[in-house]
Design a binder for these strands. Structure first.
Lengths: 241, 241
DNA sequence: GAGCATTTGTCCGTATGTATT
DNA sequence: CAATACATACGGACAAATGCT
C-alpha cells in the first residue's frame, strides 16, 4: 500500500502547516532531518523543500540551511508613493539602501523616451541596492537630467535620500506621475546583481516623476525587486468605497 | 578540467538560445534526448528542463513532452479595459471562455465590501474559465447584484458576453472603476481548478465595475491567471508622453 | 587565516509510477 | 495494448558555501 508517488507533497503539506506557526527567519528542518523523520530518501526530502520554496514559504541558503520566508507587501497606487524605508520598517523588518555609484551618461533609448528628452542628453545615472534585514531584495537605476541637479554626486554624500536632494538642491517637487509594473525573468547582470542563486521571475517597476509645479520630468527609475521577498500590489482607480 | 558543478545551467543556456528561434508550442528535446546529446545523467537533464520551466520558456506535460512556451501580455491601465478575447486573439492565439455555472448566493465579505452592499445581499455568482489555445489559463468569479439583472441566468444562454448582457438586459454601462493586481500562491481549490501540476504563484486580479451614468457598482470580479501563460502589466498614471 | 563540521547544490545510475499518444 | 515521456524515488558521491573553532 502507501506510496502514490507523491510522498514529497504530503511532506511539504505537513511542513507547511508547521511553518505557519514559526516566526519569520526561523530555521526549518533540513534535508537530512526530513529523511530521518519521514523515512524517505534525500531526493524526496529535497523535493519537499523545493516545493516549499516554490510556494515562497522558505528560503534555502547553501551551507547555512532552510529558513521561514514571508513576503512584505509593497503597495503601489495613485495616492500612495511607497518609500522603501517606510514600507519595510512598517512590516517590522530592517530597511537599508546603498548607493553603488553615480556617473553621468548619455541617456539611452528607454529613459530618454520616458523623460521626454533627446537621446544622448547627459544625465546622472544612479545605481542603488535595497536591503531587507541584510537580504539584497532590490536593485534600481535612476536617471536624473544633469540640467536639473548639476552637482548630484556631491550632494548625495551629504544627504542619503534622493528625494531630499532633488527637493533641496534641485529645488523641484518630485511627484510620481507614471508607473508600470510587471514580472519578468531578468537579464543575467540583474541576476548576479541581486545575488540570486536560481533564475526566477522578478518584479520590474518602472516609474517617472515630474515636478509638481512645472510638470516637467525630473527623474525616471527602473527597479528589479525579488518576488520571493516582496509582494507587489498595484491598485488602480479611485472609485472604491 | 570540466565539471564546475553547473552542467545543467550550461545545458539550459544552450537550449534557451536554440528555443528562441522555435515557434510557440514546438517540441523541445526531452530528458532522454538530453542525456544522450550532452552525455549527462537523468538528474542533470531534468534539472536543465526545470530551469527552463522556471524561466517560463517551456511547458512540460507528463506523458506528452516539453514544449516552447511564451507568455501573452495582458495590459491593465486606466484607459484600457482588456477583453480576454481581444487580448488573446491579438497575440495570435485562440481565446475561449466557458461558463461553469451561475447561481444566486448571499454576498460574502469581500465582494460585499467592494460593491458597497450589505453582507448577505442576494447576488448572482458567475464562475468562468478562460482558455488560450485549449490551455486553461484563468478562472474567475463574478458577482452581480440580483437587483441589477434579475434574470441573468436565462440571459446568459442567449448572449455569450457578460458585458453585453449587462448593457442590454440590465440597461447599465459597466465601466471598470477600480482594480487590484498581485501575485499569490493560490488556495488548493484554485490550483485544481486551473489543473496546475506544480504549485506556483498565480496572478490575482480583482476589479469593480460601476455604471457610467449613475456611478453605482454593478459588478465585481476576482480572477486567477496563470503566470506562466500571461504577463500581466499594470500601468498607472497618465502623464507619460 | 586555517581547519572542520554542517548544509545545501550538483550529479551519477537505476527503478518504478503515471499520463499521453 | 504498447511505446513514449515526464514524475517520483532510492542511495551514494563529491562540490561549494557557511559558520564556528
Amino acid at each position: 500500500m502507501t506510496s502514490r508517488g507523491t510522498r514529497y507533497l504530503d511532506i511539504a503539506e505537513q511542513l507547511a502547516t508547521e511553518l505557519a506557526d514559526l516566526p519569520t527567519g526561523a530555521r526549518v528542518a533540513g534535508e537530512h532531518d526530513i529523511t530521518l523523520r519521514f523515512g524517505v530518501g534525500r531526493a524526496a526530502a529535497r523535493a519537499a523543500l523545493q516545493e516549499l520554496e516554490r510556494r515562497l514559504l522558505v528560503r534555502r541558503i547553501q551551507g547555512a540551511g532552510t529558513f521561514v520566508n514571508r513576503r512584505i507587501d509593497y503597495v503601489i497606487s495613485h495616492d500612495r508613493r511607497p518609500s522603501w524605508h517606510e514600507t519595510i520598517a512598517a512590516a517590522g523588518a530592517q530597511p537599508r539602501t546603498v548607493v553603488l555609484g553615480v556617473d553621468v551618461v548619455a541617456l539611452p533609448e528607454e529613459p530618454a523616451a520616458l523623460l521626454d528628452l533627446p537621446l544622448g542628453t547627459p544625465a546622472h545615472r544612479l545605481r542603488r541596492q535595497s536591503y531587507i534585514d541584510d537580504l539584497l531584495a532590490a536593485t534600481s537605476h535612476e536617471w536624473i537630467p544633469v540640467a536639473t541637479v548639476p552637482e548630484l554626486g556631491a550632494a548625495l554624500h551629504a544627504a542619503e535620500s534622493v528625494d531630499l536632494v532633488l527637493r533641496q538642491v534641485g529645488r523641484v517637487q518630485p511627484v510620481r506621475s507614471w508607473s508600470r509594473v510587471s514580472l519578468d525573468v531578468p537579464p543575467v547582470d540583474v541576476i548576479v546583481g541581486l545575488r540570486m542563486e536560481s533564475t526566477a521571475p522578478v518584479w520590474l517597476v518602472e516609474s517617472l516623476s515630474r515636478d509638481a509645479e512645472t510638470g516637467l520630468p525630473v527623474m525616471c527609475s527602473s527597479s528589479w525587486m525579488r518576488a520571493d521577498a516582496l509582494r507587489v500590489v498595484v491598485e488602480l482607480g479611485e472609485g472604491r468605497g
